[in-house]
């Protein structure tokens, strides 16, 4: 009992001193469980996040756009891998992690349950969805668990081009024909609120410090996007959006959480489709994995 207490005290002292916790270090079970849930959800989100964009690879309008989109999606696969690896250092296997996703037990970011209807969505996703993700992720680079923090540093480094290519794509459409301009505006209209939901439910009436932190990040996101949209010569679908001289920030409207909760419950436009696509990929890859293992075993024998 007393050793348990001192272990916990030592752990807390290291957290308070902002020292990193490493895989083999002693940690409270609750810390381990929370981390596994958080990191694996994050990993699943990166992996499922490839699907809405994968939808447009074969229909990219130019080779330049196509290689950019491919590179972005490949990055997201890499992010999933960094994060799965980080989760595995906590004592859960890759197989278990996959099964949690494929069985529908694990959650992933609801944003990826929205469909990508037009090419302009590739711009809106990069600019708004990756933009919001980056703001959330920068904070995670400083998290207490070493492998997660290091994975996030890599992720953040790679994310910066995702947002830029999205903005550039939208800017090109904005300067194009009236139809292209309208298509870009439509994509922004559809992706704005889902992107805002990525900062989680708060709203200002919550006392939690983590939530007030998220509120600050969300405000920063709004301030940034509200300025950038002027350069795009477009608008955000929020009638309450206006500069507040006194606060030095943009005011913005409230999110329709009923819609978000439906998506969260699995009733979003693409919930079923996303999981079905992941299951199909996993099942159809089974023979490849088995053959690779058989090949490796055979080669080991012949050595």
């Amino acid at each position: 009992m007393s050793t348990q207490v001192s272990l916990e005290e030592r752990f807390q002292a290291r957290i308070d001193a902002e020292q990193k916790i490493e895989p083999k270090d002693w940690m409270p079970e609750a810390y381990r469980k929370t981390l596994i849930r958080q990191i694996s959800q994050h990993a699943h989100s990166e992996v499922v996040g490839m699907l809405p964009e994968g939808n447009w690879i074969t229909r990219a309008p130019s080779l330049r756009r196509k290689v950019a989109l491919l590179a972005k999606i490949q990055d997201e696969a890499g992010h999933g891998l960094y994060l799965y690896s980080a989760a595995e250092t906590l004592g859960i296997s890759r197989e278990e992690l996959y099964n949690e996703l494929l069985s529908g037990k694990a959650k992933y970011s609801s944003i990826f349950n929205y469909p990508t209807l037009t090419w302009a969505d590739m711009g809106a996703v990069g600019w708004l969805v990756d933009g919001a993700a980056i703001m959330n992720q920068v904070a995670l680079c400083k998290c207490s668990y070493g492998p997660y923090a290091r994975a996030m540093v890599r992720v953040c480094k790679e994310e910066s081009f995702h947002q830029r290519q999205g903005f550039e794509l939208l800017l090109t459409l904005s300067k194009g024909t009236p139809e292209q301009h309208a298509m870009a505006q439509d994509a922004i209209n559809r992706w704005w609120w889902p992107s805002m939901m990525m900062f989680g439910p708060n709203d200002s009436d919550s006392p939690h410090s983590a939530q007030s932190m998220r509120w600050k990040i969300k405000q920063k996101f709004v301030d940034m996007i509200a300025e950038q949209i002027k350069v795009l010569n477009m608008t955000l679908p929020d009638p309450d959006l206006r500069w507040n001289e006194e606060r030095g920030h943009y005011d913005f409207g409230t999110i329709d959480w009923t819609e978000f909760n439906e998506v969260l419950k699995g009733n979003g436009p693409c919930n079923r489709e996303r999981l079905a696509a992941r299951r199909k990929a996993w099942e159809e890859g089974a023979w490849v994995r088995e053959a690779a293992m058989a090949h490796a075993a055979k080669r080991q024998q012949s050595v």
Binding site: A71, Q74, G78, Y82, S85, E88, A296
Partner: peptide, 22 residues
């Protein structure tokens, strides 16, 4: 970092694709 692979050759190729894309 780390990754899963069936054998050393696959591990090398995956490592290239995962950790040295840039």
């Amino acid at each position: 970092g780390s990754l899963h692979a069936a054998d050393a050759q696959m591990a090398l190729e995956h490592a290239r694709d995962v950790y040295t894309r840039r």
